[in-house]
Design a protein around this nucleic acid. Structure first.
Lengths: 155, 155
DNA sequence: CTCAGATAGACAACCTTGTTGTCGAACAAT
DNA sequence: ATTGTTCGACAACAAGGTTGTCTATCTGAG
């Protein structure tokens, strides 16, 4: 088996996909059939203050148009509501509905369960080391990933 | 910051994206402006025996149509050549060109450099533990590289 | 040898998640 | 009041995936 540097990238992607796929399946099994982790993350961003399309776009490092599409989908499925802003005629404020809050709770529970499963497979210590190392490696960079045309040589 | 189970998924995705983005930038800087890691991985699969569209699709866990699109792109950029099979009139065999081989070499070198950078940041031992743990968790069934279209820069 | 079934690849239509570019309406500030 | 910025909307498009359908070709059972 080739131990090339690319293996690490594949392992990271594979790990994410395993978690995301299982979470999606679990959400589907619990009645949230047309939702994926990306929607969960968008809801969390809205809940934590990104209550307009433009702001959500900035928060997720995508264009406001892309954010608006996600919002349209979330609204169509009743996870968020859009209400005109009384003090700013341009803005349409976003509010996470009860349905959306329930989804967030469910998603968090599922990720916690998956986390616990992984702990039981490789041990809490090993998994904590993985998290700690990754946090050190990607934590600072992930925050800096704000620009869409991101070009950095992070040495 | 909540240490929820979802953090692990974000760390894995973030790690992949950091590596993939840097690799893409480096490839671009070295003259391969029109490729991304997914093309590198596809080339590698072709080189290791997936020398037809259908087989490549199976190898990458995507439909043969999706594989054909990737192949069309790789052919357009002269990384692979398509040649009719003498013994099977249906098949069109894939061959990685010299240009493709050069890209593969460059890609491998870049990933190795990134790997070395990470080693120097957190230590070879810690990074090896990350790889070992992930390999155990993700297993051999991990070579599915579809669209990393997830934009999940949460906080 | 023949013919039913499997396989390879092509084509078309569509989905998803992004991107630019443009626009009118509403705000802000000089 | 005019100029500039921001918000949200609309349109066009790209990349990468999906189904579904089609022809040509191979293969194996009778």
């Amino acid at each position: 088996m080739p131990r090339s540097g690319a293996d690490l990238a594949l392992l990271l992607l594979g790990g994410f996909r395993v978690l995301a796929d299982q979470a999606t399946n679990e959400l589907s099994a619990r009645g949230y059939e047309d939702v994926r982790p990306v929607h969960d993350f968008a809801l969390r961003a809205i809940l934590s203050g990104a209550d307009s399309a433009s702001e959500l776009g900035r928060r997720l490092s995508v264009t406001k148009q892309a954010a608006a599409k996600t919002i349209a989908l979330l609204e169509e499925r009743s996870y968020v509501a859009r209400e005109p802003d009384a003090t700013d005629g341009r803005r349409i404020r976003l509010r996470v509905t009860d349905h959306g809050l329930a989804l967030l709770q469910e998603g968090e529970a599922i990720f916690d369960e998956l986390h616990a499963q992984w702990q039981s497979r490789v041990g809490a210590t090993a998994l904590a080391q993985v998290e700690e190392t990754l946090r050190e490696l990607v934590g600072p960079s992930a925050i800096k990933l704000d620009a869409p045309g991101w070009s950095v040589r992070d040495l």
